[in-house]
Simulated scan of single mutants.
Amino acid sequence: MKKWIVVLLCILIIVIWQSIFTYKSAQDYLTNQHKKAISAAKGVESIMEVTDISTYHGTSSYSIIYSILSDDSERIICVPNKDNLEIITIDPEEGISKEEAIEIVRNNRNPLSILSVTIGVEQNVPIWEITYLDQQERYSYYYVTFKDGTFIKRYSL
């Protein structure tokens, strides 16, 4: 009986160790991607401060950098995580707001709840990705252009 307890304890320790290692590796990769993206963005804009950074996973993966420039204006810089795509700079004043994107979804889809709203890029076009629960309680995604809120696509899981 003691032999089985020792074997199970060893297996448990190995599983926990591998889980921690896998989580840490994923976090390190994301941190490195964000550092590279900030460095690339600084080559395009005169960034004074990075206020937030996130990752958009669409057709292509982008690091989305929310920043304040040297002239105190805000910019959202979308840096592709592949080298063959261009960096896209967005002036938040030149598009619809997060609240306007939410309102478009509320008016067109009548969601149970809005789960998240993120900036992204699809085919070199800045977009809003709105994730929500639909009337059948399915996770749903609604995409509109950042510039004017034009519908792009939607789907549900």
Rank of each mutant, 00 (worst) to 15 (best):
S156A: 04
R75W: 06
A26V: 14
E99G: 06
D91V: 00
T51D: 02
I5P: 06
G95N: 05
W17V: 13
Q27G: 01
E49Q: 04
G149M: 14
V144W: 13
N84P: 08
Q135S: 06
V15T: 13
I65S: 00
K82T: 07
T131I: 11
E49I: 14
K98E: 06
L85Q: 11
S97N: 10
K42T: 09
I16W: 10
R106P: 03
S156L: 01
E100C: 01
A41C: 08
E86A: 01
K24M: 00
N124Y: 12
L115G: 06
S116W: 12
R75V: 09
C10D: 08
E100N: 07
I5V: 14
I20G: 00
G43Y: 09
L133G: 01
V50C: 02
R154F: 01
E74S: 03
S25K: 15
V144M: 06
M48Y: 13
I87K: 10
H34D: 02
Y29H: 14
T131D: 07
I38N: 02
Q136H: 07
D83P: 07
H57Q: 08
I114H: 11
I20K: 11
N81K: 10
K2A: 02
S19T: 12
E103L: 10
R138A: 00
Y143T: 13
H34P: 08
L112R: 14
I119M: 07
I96Y: 05
T131Q: 14
Y141S: 01
I53C: 03
G120I: 08
V7L: 15
S140W: 00
C10N: 11
T31C: 02
S25M: 11
D83T: 09
Q27F: 11
Q123F: 06
Y141N: 08
T51Y: 03
S116G: 00
Y155W: 14
S19P: 10
D148K: 12
I104E: 00
N84H: 09
H57G: 01
P126M: 04
T59C: 04
V121R: 12
Y23E: 10
A101W: 12
D83K: 14
I16H: 07
I102W: 08
N107V: 10
D134H: 08
Q135P: 08
Y142W: 08
V117M: 03
W17L: 05
G149S: 07
A101P: 11
V44E: 04
P126A: 02
Y23R: 15
E103S: 04
F151M: 01
S113W: 10
Y66G: 03
H57T: 14
S97F: 03
V15N: 09
Q123C: 00
N81H: 09
R154K: 15
W128S: 01
I13C: 06
R106V: 02
Q123R: 15
I102F: 08
